[in-house]
Design a binder for these strands. Sequence first.
DNA 1: AATTTATATCACTAATAAGTGACAGCCACT
DNA 2: AGTGGCTGTCACTTATTAGTGATATAAATT
Lengths: 202, 202
Amino acid sequence: MLRNKNQTKQKIITAVGGLLARDGFAKLGVNALAREAGVDKVLIYRYFDGLPGVLRSYAESTDFWPTPAEVITQDLGQPGDTGSAQIIGDIMVNLARALRNRPLTTEIMAWELVEQNELTNILFERREQWALNIIENYAFEHGQVPADLPALTALLNAAINYLIIRARTTPVFNLVEIDTERGWQRLENMIRELCSSYFSRP
Amino acid sequence: MLRNKNQTKQKIITAVGGLLARDGFAKLGVNALAREAGVDKVLIYRYFDGLPGVLRSYAESTDFWPTPAEVITQDLGQPGDTGSAQIIGDIMVNLARALRNRPLTTEIMAWELVEQNELTNILFERREQWALNIIENYAFEHGQVPADLPALTALLNAAINYLIIRARTTPVFNLVEIDTERGWQRLENMIRELCSSYFSRP
DNA sequence: AATTTATATCACTAATAAGTGACAGCCACT
DNA sequence: AGTGGCTGTCACTTATTAGTGATATAAATT
């Protein structure tokens, strides 16, 4: 027993990530968390005032969501800019790849579909902010937003989220392998093709 | 107490639907089910050998998934046929509408993302079968399948599923209202536009 | 060194879960 | 009428959950 409050708090917060990654949100409870952290559960109540408080702290301590730099690989409106369609397509493909490398975020995204809590609320806010930034950047750099950009990104983003969440437990969706690189290549190609044909429609 | 085995079994099966619709899958357990059905829980074990057995029977007794007729409103390859793009777009929009009218199916689709059981397995099989039919019909009627039809329908289908599941608990996704007719109009338009521009790409 | 304060542990309650064994009552058939 | 089997009820065990009050022990302050 380390008589060190901060270190104990840290152990608890770290254990949240461990539990989520290993057993998923379904098994995340006060007892399990205390066991995982190797700490008495009373301390969860004392230091965090219960599980929601732990989640709040955990949310602040981690960055679930990809950074803008991770997703926006082109300088919009700059010399290298290869055009609207490719930019949006790139962003979506990058988002898909970034999320596929974040099993913890995936887990929380799944959670988000079942119940709302501190973690999922924060994830929600960040995503909305993220979407807003893309729209605003795009509008700013290109003068005007085409047709219904929010609807386009909402659809693609929703598809990506679903397939990534789904891939945790199922290898195939609608005849496409969602657990292999090959399958995701097909999906990425389709995302790009959809963007490019949408932006160059008559 | 009705001394009638079949009627009791029926009450239990019906109660599954009621519980799912009202409280969601998270609260579906043996005790809750017995309470809902107004039946002693021992009978769940005697007649169905536990909860999984009930789910199996329930799955056989209900049709979660939209019928082909509900989704395919055009006669493919017939005089009225308005072209590849519109057909696929129609199918997807119809699917979205059909699912939006099936809160129970939505609930089970959400469940499907969290764990696998008899119910979700059956739903999975039907969906794959459904997708296969569309592909085959399409290939048959139009001679050849364009580019990567499975990837296209997988993406659109995934997007639809996600947004419908999501709408249970959240009104907005990526700046689009997913709990109103107006928001879904935007999404439906985008689905159609994506299909039409994809099929008419150079 | 003695006392106070912060840190961690223990032991418990109350609620709920899945699952089981023994019993009560009705019905049909002998 | 009596017997056997089917239908339903009750009472219980075991395990797990969230949450709380009292207590021990290490560290800091006096």
